[in-house]
């Protein structure tokens, strides 16, 4: 089905950089914003990787770059080991089929003018999978998978609740039998009670279909139960990657620690460094020098203001980009 270019992770980025610029006007120079800076992540087959960070950290842009929705300025994206920049058209199409997306806003991601059946069948339409009859059967099957009644196919998005709409979006993503689903804040627009239903459904489908998830979230608690590994992102950079339990018990980057401190947890009696995350995320138009986090970091030294820390392994499977990682003294 898919060409193997070399055995590596299923979906991987190396030093990925995405910039947004406005073109120079007649009387004005061009401006450039680096939304993602030299980010390297790897998603293994069947794995759940969560990317967390405040809004403005570039995580949504990272997801969109993976889907080819925004052009990349530098670095590379590999799917199944193949560089997307040099992919042949059939390879690119196969990748689009295999990497699906669920968006944040269940009210915005479904076309209000189309019946649900047509929305779910759209990937099949675009990729020319199956006959009209087999597509209808597939839609009914998918509606069952996400726990909706088969008659939903004939109704319109505005007739469903937020949770139901997110299930529809999920069914659409599942339609072409993908291997990866990238979900951008899939839960943030939903009520807490519905969030847990959705998480259970996602976990169950993953087990059944052998899916890998890349979940974008600002909420560490929400990803705790479903993620295998977590990557923390700050101002366009990946600053820490670790297995979920390791990250939750021994965060090495002060930023991760601060995010964790904001999470209400049962039995969290331990002292957490950097509990107070003061100030706002700086403007990506004028990022701080050195480590981008240093103006808000309780452990910052003069080194942090000048040198940008590189990613390095402090333990097996635990990488961090910090001059003074916590718990290493």
């Amino acid at each position: 089905m898919h060409t193997v270019c070399g055995m590596t992770a299923l979906l991987e980025t190396t030093n990925l950089t995405v910039s947004f610029g406005d073109r120079a006007g007649w009387f004005r120079p061009a401006r450039e914003v680096l939304a993602v800076r030299s980010a390297s992540i790897a998603l293994q087959a069947g794995e759940v990787l969560a990317v967390v960070g405040e809004s403005g950290s570039g995580k949504t842009t990272l997801a969109r770059a993976l889907l080819g929705l925004v052009p990349i300025a530098a670095g590379e994206i590999r799917y199944d080991g193949c560089d997307t920049a040099t992919m042949t058209a059939p390879q690119a199409l196969a990748m689009r089929r295999s990497v699906q997306m669920v968006f944040q806003d269940p009210f915005g991601s479904l076309d209000p003018r189309l019946p649900v059946g047509a929305i779910i069948a759209e990937p099949l339409d675009i990729h020319g999978i199956g006959s009209p009859a087999s597509r209808r059967a597939r839609v009914a099957e998918l509606l069952g998978l996400v726990g909706l009644a088969a008659d939903a196919a004939g109704r319109y998005p505005h007739q469903f609740s937020g949770g139901q709409r997110q299930r529809i979006a999920f069914a659409r993503a599942l339609a072409p039998s993908p291997r990866v689903i990238i979900a951008d804040e899939p839960l943030s627009a939903l009520d807490v009670s519905i969030q847990s239903q959705m998480l259970n459904m996602a976990a169950e489908l993953r087990a059944r279909l052998g899916l890998a998830y890349l979940i974008i979230s600002h909420d560490l608690a929400a990803v705790h139960h479903i993620a295998d590994r977590v990557a923390t992102m700050y101002l366009g950079r990946i600053v820490e990657v670790a297995d979920v339990d390791e990250l939750f018990t021994r965060p090495a980057h002060p930023y991760t620690a601060a995010l964790l401190a904001a999470v209400p947890r049962i039995g969290a009696g331990k002292w957490m460094p950097g509990a107070a995350l003061g100030g706002d995320i700086p403007s990506p138009l004028a990022p701080p020098t050195g480590c981008a986090f240093h103006p808000r970091c309780p452990a910052a030294s003069s080194l942090c203001a000048t040198a940008t820390p590189e990613m390095r392994a402090i333990r097996a499977g635990h990488d961090v980009a910090c001059h003074h990682p916590l718990g290493t003294a």
Binding site: L67, F103, A169
Partner: peptide
């Protein structure tokens, strides 16, 4: 986002304009 969703599938410009 529903247009982004179609673009992520690789839908052609004509299809996006006509359908969405």
């Amino acid at each position: 986002e529903f247009v982004l969703a179609a673009r992520a599938q690789g839908a052609s410009s004509l299809r996006i304009l006509w359908v969405h």
